[in-house]
Design a protein around this nucleic acid. Sequence first.
DNA 1: TACTGTTTAAAACATACGTTTAGAATGACA
DNA 2: TGTCATTCTAAACGTATGTTTTAAACAGTA
Lengths: 216, 216
Amino acid sequence: MTGKIPVKQPVKQNARERILDVSEKLFANGSFASVSVRSVTAAAGVNLSAVNYYFGSKQGLFQAVYIRRATLMNHERLRLLYETAEKARAEGRDVSLRELIGAMLTPPIFWLCEEKPGFSLYIRFLARAYLEEASDMDHVLRQEVDVFDKFLPYFRKIKPGLSEKDIYWRIHFMMGVMHHTINHLHRISLLSHKSCKSETAAQTRDRLVDFCCDGF
Amino acid sequence: MTGKIPVKQPVKQNARERILDVSEKLFANGSFASVSVRSVTAAAGVNLSAVNYYFGSKQGLFQAVYIRRATLMNHERLRLLYETAEKARAEGRDVSLRELIGAMLTPPIFWLCEEKPGFSLYIRFLARAYLEEASDMDHVLRQEVDVFDKFLPYFRKIKPGLSEKDIYWRIHFMMGVMHHTINHLHRISLLSHKSCKSETAAQTRDRLVDFCCDGF
DNA sequence: TACTGTTTAAAACATACGTTTAGAATGACA
DNA sequence: TGTCATTCTAAACGTATGTTTTAAACAGTA
């Protein structure tokens, strides 16, 4: 009503960034093919051609959504790993299995449960992206593999009885538990006939880490 | 060249069945939206309108693919459960955790590894179907939930210390390991830098059961 | 102001999609 | 044989898709 305050469009960030945010959300809930460029641009409030302008193609957009956060998550994993290793060293002991697995699982689970706003969508997006062959996701996995390789020596030290092959299989299984938990978190209530109410991020993480620790 | 033997179209089963087979394969490798009716009918060698003729719609086809095998798999799970329970009773002991989990995981894993030809595709299809919201898969899960409820008393007896909630969470995690293993079996070689060659169905099942047993 | 590169806008393009329709072929049975 | 329901075929319909094109609006700079 004052009619004079220079609003300066406070919400409207970069159009490019807005497209990424919206795509992240839509791709988290639907497959690559089921999300149309038009639905993205409409939800982002930009022109249809903006996607091709900024990302070249729909495919380019999909990969851009991935790239924006992947490196950050894997850095966070390594940060936790080295922080934990340093602490253990200071205390003159080995890193525990629990700490190792926690370092792998905490970033995605915490992000999922909205400790970092907006990132939870990325986690769901990521789990879905694994199934999209159209998006050429092998180099995506490669980045995760590199991170896991950094974890490997610690696992070997804790579990000298296991072969490298055994360890890889178990890491594989761990990722399975995690991705499934992320993708189907809402289904635990269906499975349990509504008796399992939603829990906090830390509780979920602990359940997950417990299960994976024992599995290892 | 004899030109007289009545060939009787030996390969060409029901067109309906052929469509289901082809759809199973295509939906196993791609999302609902990414698989076109035309690609299905072309691969099945039938007319375009056959899908709508037999199944009403693309959606109807998708659900038909699911229904064709779902009941069979869950029956097989229950059969293993009761068979195992009977054997244990005869031996005057409780069912072991290993047997319980084996009964849940053996049918899908064995089918995956082609012990029953053709069914492996269904397993991959199933894991993917969980992600398709378009296909209204809640009543699908409901059927699995009913099966798991049959398992619940046995779990409670073995693990009296666990709450019902704990058990549901662990079943949830188990399904996660299984689905991930099914969907990304080929990726274990990438993860392990090719050191993990493919194993037999029994070996894979054993690894999986081991991991889940310890997690429980 | 005039020039420049960047960003947004509207429209059109060519293709692919799921579905429908009208009719031909088929096979079983009278 | 003729009749009838079932199965298959070809063509078309209307719509939605990813992408391209052309030009206008904008912001910074000399």
